[in-house]
Write a protein that binds this DNA or RNA. Sequence first.
DNA 1: CCTAGCATGTAACCAGTTACATGATTCA
DNA 2: TGAATCATGTAACTGGTTACATGCTAGG
Lengths: 183, 183
Amino acid sequence: MSLRFTLLGFLSYGPMTGYDLKKHIDNSTQFFWHASLSQIYPTLKRMDEDGLVEAAVIPQEGRPDKKVYTITPAGQAALMDWLAEPLGELSPQKDPALLKLFFSGVLNREAILAHLCRHQELHRARLAHYRKETASYIEQIIVATDFTREGIMWELVRQWGEQYEQAYIQWLEQAIATIEEEF
Amino acid sequence: MSLRFTLLGFLSYGPMTGYDLKKHIDNSTQFFWHASLSQIYPTLKRMDEDGLVEAAVIPQEGRPDKKVYTITPAGQAALMDWLAEPLGELSPQKDPALLKLFFSGVLNREAILAHLCRHQELHRARLAHYRKETASYIEQIIVATDFTREGIMWELVRQWGEQYEQAYIQWLEQAIATIEEEF
DNA sequence: CCTAGCATGTAACCAGTTACATGATTCA
DNA sequence: TGAATCATGTAACTGGTTACATGCTAGG
């Protein structure tokens, strides 16, 4: 259901194609909400049937016709209802890396350390991404569109990403120390 | 796929029914891997067909026969292969609460603050849970089974849960301050 | 020459949720 | 009296992934 709201959210900033939406998702919500084109296209189609968006077909040569989607008043209303609705329970997360670690007591010291170091590398890369690419993307959009209020929210969420990665890396540091001492 | 490894992981500690497995999941992996009974039962059945586990049927009166599953050598091997295999990319997370916040720039100051406070409450409750219920559950199992090596891993993962929640709460604190000042 | 970007989709499949179905025992 | 615990499952559905299909243009 949240994919529909993701799409409505971006379309509330302006009309766009499914392809454009995918790029915005990849550049901003990617790390707390992602979707593939093969999920986006049929979803937009159903949202059109439900009257939440409207498609304007722009003929093109040499490539498929462009479908530019615009949010309808009904779509705006649905988005606002969802935004206003209080948060439910925390949504359960799944993290295969933690699961593997949880059951890794049977492995030897070196194998566990290898997992932890690899894990740390991945999180360092992501931290760098939040600080560089994500930060500049947000700034760029704020400058281009003058969405200052929206920009405050985007930036807050980006900061959570940064702090999350920092905390993760710190914990892994401690975990490595623990294994080196106790295992 | 990871559900199969979750079940194999717990079954490597000893034979159990699907019902027992569900309780272990709820008490320990719940926050990074969860599953419902209606997913666990058919999965165990298919794992039996694939030779990863074996069921011993224990007739009971007044309730369905108990099926106690035991991990087979093939199951043990599959579990070890998975544990040894290096971590792939970070698995994409989905968090509807962050998504809502991301698009909340159109809401007024009070509505945003309400979301943030509610969010903080939920995370405080979870932090308390990790510190009390989860911690005592782990200690209890370590004492009962003498799985000290395994216990170190369980405790490490629990500590991540605790640090994650602390970081989340801190970020929300900052976010509340930012909205109060800038919005 | 090959990769990336533009631009759309369908079909088969897998994972996971929700609702349904049964039924005894224990505890507040 | 009603909820929780024990103990199993099935069926319909929703959400999401993977593979397939088409085909032009621009740039390194």
